[in-house]
Design a protein around this nucleic acid. Structure first.
Lengths: 198, 198, 198, 198
DNA sequence: GGGTAATCGAGACGGTACGTCGTGTCTTTCC
DNA sequence: GGAAAGACACGACGTACCGTCTCGATTACCC
């Protein structure tokens, strides 16, 4: 099962410093396991086996499973770009479509695992909170632009809007309902941003 | 609600049928463990120990951890009633305040655990989906009443509104941010329902 | 696996007294299980299943597993007949060949189980000792006849000879080496009885 | 022989190789349990508890209960030396006397357990067969020496003689009759080796 | 001939042990 | 001093039996 794509080459020490190839192999293996079997298949033993690494090597650099999970996610999360179509409703729909497509391709499983972990591990929860706040700031820009061009009311809150749209996306991810078509999303978005219109 | 830490009395078989006292003791123990230490402390062994039950007795009635989890939650959720203040915004705010208070009192930890479990177990995910759809139908009624009395536009969707407000509540629960004050919630609600106003 | 030959008919109570059909079915099932899978497959649960009996019914009549084992053995052990060819060596060879064939057909497994049980249960050990002494007296007759006809020395001991030949047979049974051919046995017998010759 | 009831000190790993202290503690605990309560009290769980070892540690080195049992016995039997009095009959008597005394001191209980185990577990049976064959080769030397010095006939078989004498000893052990006096044993031996005399 | 009493199958119960898996720590050997 | 290797104590997993229990039903016996 997990012998599908084991790192073939064996990496020895490269002296008294961290071997980047090892770090890379470990993160790669961890991500692959998460994508393939989710949090259930994600164990330090399995990662070590697949990355041809020793368990202590993993524990040297990541104090526990959760930290490794978070690092896997860090590597992943810098891809999504905000769109700017000039119309806020269209921006939101494209944002959701892009996000759902991105998640469906694999990273969604990793993100789900972070959520799962965060429910019992406070460090993960804090990391997730930080990340979410950060993303909120980022996608709030979409609404700020719409306010600036007079499409949305000046007294509406970009941050609240960003939170609500993120919450909606998460709820779909976490309940395994990423297969929404554009029309559905458009209906949701229209209702969500309707109250902000100038 | 009196938390005797370990079930003291010993329960024998009451014949060739399920012993309700045993079922009760197991659910009680499971709930207590979840409230106290979350999903991490929730193991079949621990439940058995605390309920003074044999492991096989648990496995006889609950095929896996998740089913037990769901049963614990089912047993819990008989409280929440929809409010009807006559103003949709007020309804939503009271709904969220009530929900957050309810979750904060303990059940939130159980619900979080179900979400965590659902991220790697498809059966749990399906159960969670069913439950969520059910709740959605239920809280959609709040918006239907507002449409009926002409407060909200006739072409707005109660189900979408219910999903969005639930998604928001979940996102706060799952990221450990249930400590919102009324003003914050009111701002969020105003923006969420603004687009539905007649 | 064990549904091979379950007692088909269901036996109800026949009033306030022991049902002989039940006792018979239980002993039958126990023996069959022992023959098929040895002591490992011999569990009260399995016996009850196979005999279509309730566990308490078994425990009512046999205080524990060992007693049931002994009863199974009691039913079995009255079959072997001594041969008399007129030549002691031939008698012994035929005795061993017959015994090995008899054991190989099934009863050997039951006997082995008694030996196993006797190593940790003193009651079984005592029963086994009694039985062995009895058998010794019985097969000593073979040597007495040989002494009587002058084939063996008058000062040789039939009981010792019986013990030695039984010990040899047991050692083969208990180490699973019943597949000896006649020539091998003859060599052993010749050496065993050689010292007794007139 | 000082029986500290539970190994007090905790043993960690000593690197990627077997820890002899752990092995020792496990064998020690296993032996103690066998001596105290026989096969009935001998469970992997109990051994692990007493030796302060993890169950997986035991299973890592001993694939099953039986192998552990055999190793306990191996560790025990470093005493018995073949005697060489120059007379085969005396050799045999001393051999049996020594063996019975040795067994009576404790190891007999262990060996009985091995026999019990071998009656339902084929792996144990095979191990026991191997061990027995080995011992047979070893004690056959006693007879080879006697043949060499012309005391026994050249065409007699040392291996058969070794098997027969071992079988006799086993039968006494397994039926709990180790309390034979020298005269009895001498009578048995005389009859057993009589047929081999030159 | 109706009540009582012991029997029967059935199967749930609290336990103990099984053998496997994963966690996070530890140490040695090689580079 | 980093890295692979893998042993270690621990504890949860899900399963099998143990011996005890309580039921509801089925008779025979006694009054």
């Amino acid at each position: 099962m997990d012998h599908k794509s084991i790192a073939p080459e064996k990496r020895a020490s490269i002296g008294a410093r961290r071997n980047p190839a090892t770090e890379e192999a470990i993160l790669e293996a961890a991500e692959a396991l998460l994508r393939e079997s989710g949090l259930a298949g994600f164990s330090i033993e399995a990662v070590a086996r697949r990355a041809r690494a020793g368990k202590p090597t993993i524990y040297r650099w990541w104090p526990n499973k959760t930290k490794l999970l978070l690092d896997v996610y860090q590597r992943l999360k810098l891809k999504m770009e905000a769109v700017d179509t000039g119309a806020i409703e269209e921006d939101c729909v494209q944002f959701l479509l892009g996000l759902f497509a991105y998640w469906s391709a694999g990273p969604g499983q990793v993100f789900r695992s972070i959520f799962a972990e965060a429910q019992s591990d406070e460090a993960s929860a804090a990391a997730l909170r930080d990340y979410a706040a950060n993303r909120r700031q980022h996608s709030a820009k979409m609404f700020e632009r719409a306010i600036a061009r007079g499409e949305l009311r000046a007294d509406s809150s970009p941050v609240i809007a960003a939170e609500v749209i993120a919450a909606f996306a998460w709820s779909r991810l976490l309940t395994g309902r990423l297969d929404a078509d554009e029309a559905d999303l458009r209906a949701v978005v229209r209702q969500m941003v309707g109250g902000m219109r100038a």
